[in-house]
């Protein structure tokens, strides 16, 4: 066993699993292994307890409307622990429904209002006869990094004052097609509509996330130096 390890929770992995978001864990493990860090994954699903102290990273992927409602009904049982985790700067990647549900609410195509857990203050509307589908490129304001992906969503998300976009849209639609933002960042929570999956296609972002995770867990180690020689994949 390696000296260092990351314990990840894959929230509702067996329900929110429509768009290959699992690949984000494959990518993080791939990079972690190169610097001698083990990467363990637990599935935390319906009826399971979420132990916020146990995890160093959480992935919450996107799903289909039907499953998303089933998940929304179960989420209140975990919402206190998820909020504790987020407020304690826990690293979190929410994709599509996985970050919509952290906000206040979202509307489904048929108008149904699904309550989020209000851990954050964004909300998501719907566009009944349109869908944002296609390749997308964004640029991160704080790092200048460019991220590419494939967006496929009907929801239109509007972020709050204490949240900022993951990047500014260079081409594509982004959160809502209006404000040129894509995804969101709040503390160490990253949200995005990117499939593809985002961390497999954007090694720069994967390494950025890995640095956040490891620095929080093992602050005494110089992770930047350890990660420097790792070659990021991007396509």
């Amino acid at each position: 066993m390696a000296k260092y390890q990351i314990n990840a929770a894959h929230l509702y992995a067996d329900l929110m699993n429509t768009y290959g978001d699992y690949g984000n864990l494959v990518a993080l493990r791939y990079y972690a292994q190169q610097i001698g860090v083990d990467f363990n994954v637990d599935v935390v699903s319906i009826g399971d307890e979420f132990h916020d102290q146990k995890y160093d990273f959480v992935l919450f992927g996107g799903g289909q409307d039907y499953e998303e409602q089933v998940v929304a009904a179960d989420l209140p049982t975990k919402s206190a622990a998820i909020k504790r985790y987020i407020e304690a700067d826990g690293p979190f990647l929410g994709v599509c429904g996985g970050f919509q549900l952290l906000g206040e609410y979202f509307l489904l195509a048929d108008g149904t209002r699904v309550e989020g857990i209000s851990a954050m203050r964004h909300y998501t509307l719907n566009q009944p006869h349109n869908r944002f589908t296609g390749n997308i490129r964004i640029q991160s304001e704080e790092t200048g990094q460019i991220y590419v992906g494939f967006e496929n969503h009907q929801g239109r998300t509007f972020i709050a004052d204490n949240e900022r976009p993951l990047g500014n849209v260079l081409s594509g639609n982004g959160n809502n097609g209006e404000d040129h933002g894509e995804g969101l960042i709040y503390k160490n929570v990253f949200g995005t509509y990117f499939h593809g999956p985002i961390l497999t296609r954007n090694g720069n972002l994967a390494l950025r996330m890995l640095a956040i995770i490891l620095k929080r867990k093992y602050p005494e180690i110089d992770w930047k130096a350890k990660l420097a020689p790792v070659e990021p994949e991007s396509f």
């Binding site: 067996d14 699993n17 429509t18 039907y66 499953e67 089933v70 009904a73």
Partner: peptide, 18 residues
Amino acid sequence: ERAPHNTDGILSPTDNSI
């Protein structure tokens, strides 16, 4: 056993349990 994590259509029609 349960189906692997990346399987869809695993909800019970009666109560949406897995």
